[in-house]
Structure formats: C-alpha cells, structure tokens
C-alpha cells in the first residue's frame, strides 16, 4: 500500500494558486503614448507645412483645447477639427498652467487618432 501524504503539497499548490490569482487581478496592462520633445531633437515637419499647435488650458476636469482661433472643450470636437488638417504636419501640444496631466494625454491621443504621426510636446522654457 502506497501511503503518500499529499497535504503539504496541496498546501503549497493552493498557496501558489492564490498568489497568481491575486497578482493577475491587480496586474493592469499599461500602454505608452509617444511624443517627441519640442525644441531639441524634435522631428522636422515638411517645410511647406505649418505645425499645428494645440494649446491646452482650463482647469482639472474641465479642459479646453485651442487650435488656431478655435477653442473646443469636447474630445469629439477636437478630433473633428484636427481631421480637417493635413496629417503630414507636425502637431505641437502646449499646456499652460491649470489643467491636469490627463488633458495633455488626451490632446496627444486625439492628435494620433486624427492621423498625425509627428506629435511633439512642448513643456515650455
């Protein structure tokens, strides 16, 4: 008769199972939003195209985005506005004091969604 005491092995197995369950539940996947830095080393836009400047302002939770003379507060409006422009242009995102980081990432994301490949972030001087 083969007597195997499996209790300890089961203990260890359930410990491992519990550990991986817990870590899998809290392990969120992150992604990256790439932006070159305006000023030094930023990709050069074609000479015949003016860079598109998105100015981000407002306050946390209530940002606005200004492109040229037009200021919009909604995500969809900014996307529609950018889609009217030539996506070969470079986009420069400028943020003045007031809004939160989320407004900046939103502007970069929308520029990318609109098809712009050269997106730069200008932190000012």
């Amino acid at each position: 008769m083969l007597a195997l005491n499996l209790a300890t092995m089961l203990d260890a197995t359930f410990l491992l199972l519990g550990y991986f369950l817990v870590t899998a539940a809290t392990d969120r996947l992150e992604r990256r939003l790439d932006a070159s830095l305006a000023g030094e080393g930023a990709a050069v836009a074609p000479a015949d195209l003016e860079p598109v400047v998105i100015e981000v302002g407002g306050e946390p939770g209530r940002p606005w985005y200004r492109v040229g003379e037009r200021a919009v507060a909604e995500r969809a409006s900014l996307l529609a506005l950018l889609r009217q422009l030539d996506p070969r242009s470079q986009v420069r995102v400028l943020a003045s004091s007031g809004p939160s980081v989320e407004a900046v990432t939103t502007a970069i994301q929308i520029a990318r969604d609109a098809g712009f490949t050269e997106v730069a972030y200008d932190p000012g001087s």
């Binding site: 992604r31 830095l37 990432t105 001087s125």
Partner: peptide, 16 residues
C-alpha cells in the same frame, strides 16, 4: 519634462 529635455532627451513615453 523640461528636466528630461535638459538631460538630452528627445522624446518621452507617457504611460496610459
């Protein structure tokens, strides 16, 4: 970001 740029950085990757 200015500090990263001053250190010679040319781009950043913002985590989302």
């Amino acid at each position: 970001v200015r500090a990263l740029r001053d250190a010679g950085g040319t781009s950043v990757r913002l985590a989302v």
